[in-house]
Amino acid sequence: MAAPPERRWGEAVLNLYIVVFFVYLFAPLLVMSLAAFNDFQYPSVTQWRGWTLRWFGELARDVRLQQGLINSLLIAMGVIAISLPCGLAGALILTRLESRWNGLLYGILVSPILTPGIILGISTLILWRNLGVPGGLFLACVAQSSFIASYCMLLFMARLQRQDRTLEDAALDLGASNLMVFRRITLPFLTPTIATAAVIGFLQSIENYNTTVFAIGGQWTLVTEIGSRFRFGLTPVINVIGVIFVVITIVCAVIWTVLRQRERQMTIR
């Protein structure tokens, strides 16, 4: 059945729009990546001085950026260690609590996602200043955890809503201890979500700028260091970091696609 001409036009316009949209998404990344290979001291693609790999070498010698990466990883570890247990606790309570306070509690625990990042950073900084703790890695970790825990909680809640609680009841009836029920039934059921939450928390933490820049004090992470380079002079080293991000992402995306396809083929068989 042929579509009427009007509809075909509509689809052509839409397809064109999608193409334009993806050019909008990817062209900037292409420009940025290209400048990483330009043998010119300022990041540029228009003043082309020939291909070079020298900025990769510069990155390898850049101690501040490397220390920043280490700090970012440390913070991410801390964030995961705080966010997963807190998020899980919140999710367990919210899925079981039958009270009119449930809505309010939910609203408060979700609110950090809806709060601008700079405000999370500022409020954490002010609270801990009163306790005599200055900005630094620890505060960055705490500030990020406030909203990353909310993401974790939402993931856990989505999973817990599909949980078959009769399993736990059965285990209890058969004489399992409470701890054993949690360890042998609830945790295994949540394992995939724990992995997802850890990955998402890790990525969110590494990426974060708005919250971290207020809470980090005199320390720095990879991202805040990049941020301060915008003020104090840019070199294509920053573009090299961009290229590395792009490559890692594309590799992950390809692996993910391949795995998914294989999974689909398995289910078809």
Partner: peptide, 12 residues
């Protein structure tokens, strides 16, 4: 594009 940091995206 979202796996690339916000700062770098804006920088592009």
């Amino acid at each position: 594009p979202y796996a690339i940091n916000e700062l770098l995206r804006v920088y592009a």
